[in-house]
Design a protein around this nucleic acid. Sequence first.
DNA 1: AAATGCTGTCATATC
DNA 2: TAGATATGACAGCAT
Length: 721
Amino acid sequence: MLYLKKYFTEGLIQFTILLSLIGVRVDVDTYLSNQLPPLREIILGPSSAYTQTQFHNLRNTLDGYGIHPKSVDLDHFFTTRRLLNQVRQLDRLSVPSTELNTWLVHRDSETVVSASSQSSPSITLDNGAGLEDVDNPDATPAMRGGSGAPESTYNLNAADSSLGAVALEGNQEQGSRDGNDDLTKEDIDLGAGRVVFYYSNRQKESEEEKPSPRRTKMRNRRAGEMEYNLQGAQPVDGETGESIPEQLDLEQQWQDIMAIMELQAMEVNNTSLQANSSSVSSGTTESNTAGNFGLSTRSTPINQDVSLHQASLPSCSQDFPQIFNPQLDSVSITSRPTMLRLSSSNSTNINSTFGATNLTGIFLPPHINSSSNNITATPILPDPFSTLLEESMLDEISLLDLAMEEGFSQAQASQLEDELDSDSGLSLDSSHSPASPSSSETSCSSAASSSSTSATFSEEGAVGYSTDSEVATAETEEGAVGGYQPGYSKLCRMSYQDPSQFHSLPQLDSISHNHTYNLPLSSAFTEHPELPISTGKKTVRDKQSSKLQPAQDLLDKHSSRDERRARAMKIPFSNDKIINLPVEEFNELLAKHHLSEAQLALIRDIRRRGKNKMAAQNCRKRKLDTIINLEQGVQDLRRDKARLLKEKMEFIRSIRQMKQKMQSLYQEVFTQLRDEEGRPYPPSEYSLQYSADGSVLIMPRCMTTAEQNRKPEKKQKDKKK
DNA sequence: AAATGCTGTCATATC
DNA sequence: TAGATATGACAGCAT
């Protein structure tokens, strides 16, 4: 029953996301308020979403529902929680977290969307049509209706022609192109998810061979998308103009992702504007990046979000004029910016987009009479918002970076594991950190302060060595280390290393591995048998041993094997000395005593093992340090990568601005040019060519080189159609 | 009972 | 060359 409830809950959430994506508000409050208060709080709670997850509390919460922290149910819970968090994050300028949602929607839209569209005729998918109503009165009802179906959503029709210069360059053989560009917001968003998915999916495929049902789903989904593209008579991906599965070098992926970022940021821009202006969101910003999610806090279970109809009406951003391609018609200009943006983003290759040749292609002379298009009527966002948008994009890029490099679910799982481990063996408890008293250290000090116990063991230990006069001599010589100094004990020495090393690595605080050297503890126990040792396994033995046991048994139980061997062989000095004395002093010590061959062999073994033990501890600590340093290095590199990406975005933006200026100049110059008879040059037959020396020539298009000329010519033909 | 982590030990390589 | 150190591998124990 619990399983059913959880599955139903997750299904409900996914369904909510689906409905939200298509513009139908679904309020899960009525369900969650009674069924799953914590989930409701996760969704609607004002405080928990932006605070660090307290997994202890979460665990308590989970316990309330009978989910053991290590139960597989936890995965379901976190999956649910992740989905809900993603929904929550939709009200801010967030991009990548919606990628997966996009896929979910895309996968299920065939069934859900159609059902929802019946009950809600003005849902999001109608958005594009609604925009066409405004911007393109000629849009046919069929188109509008088509835009409400996913097939039509993916049927780009001739929208590919609007993919921009680069896309066109990559698809010279594209056929008819008309001005009916009804590529909707959903198109772009879904495409975004698609590209990202390709990346992560491939990465995961390389990581694990075993196909999962989810991956199979993804593959099927992807196949379905390509079908949609084929419906649009597109041999390539209809949204990027690229054959994504075939060329995914990393650089191209980044360009694609950046393009997606810009696209989605633009969507955020639009929807945020709408949310701010329409003031229908009742406190919950309904802007999102994946196509107008609207998880309302209203009590109405399902609302028809009429505002979404207008969501993209002010479809512009600051960058919009920059990316406006004059070669495009003014028809359906509202739905175009995304495509234009895409095309512009695809042209992130500076060499290809800023070269003289491409300038003629990109800045193909526009139809002058279409200059009075909607751009003039669209408001331009102020810079601060754009800046904010870019910052958000940068953040999301960083997140996406992580997601791409590690896989989203994997990273999330590791994060959860880390947080769940906070009270596990690898505890964050500072008392377990090397920089603070460890368990052995604490027990050591407590033992040293336990006078009664100490006295008892001291006496017993003295008995152990009393049979050998040399032992007595040796113990006397040791003097201060004879175990009668309550204030000082070599037992309490944690390590032969400088403990400050631990302080230099704060990350070690989170590691409870005790790689300090308690060897002196055990080895010196021969020397200080009066002090109990209660570290690790010995503690258990302590518990198991009865207080009535003979002291010698206790001594043996507290001793290491070498200590017991040494005692059995009547080695006249401590293992501590055997191990830690410099080789010269060690040899002197051996020479001072008359030892049998067996004793000498044992002593050498004890020394070897003791040193190796310390070496092993050092080695393990170094290993940990190396891992920690590597992690830090990875973090630094990721930070650098994000910074470089931001710089790259700025460069692209700058290039875009320059391209716009160039376009304006091109238009200005070209429209003023007259032939010998005073007639203007037809843009379809002439173009301006830039020579290397900076001069500008007007040339017939047929005279330009085939490579340079074909593209604009094609475009021109397309435009004529 | 299996999984996992920690620790000690051995073998071996290197310094 | 001997001794010290480093490290992978393994086993035993505890959780």
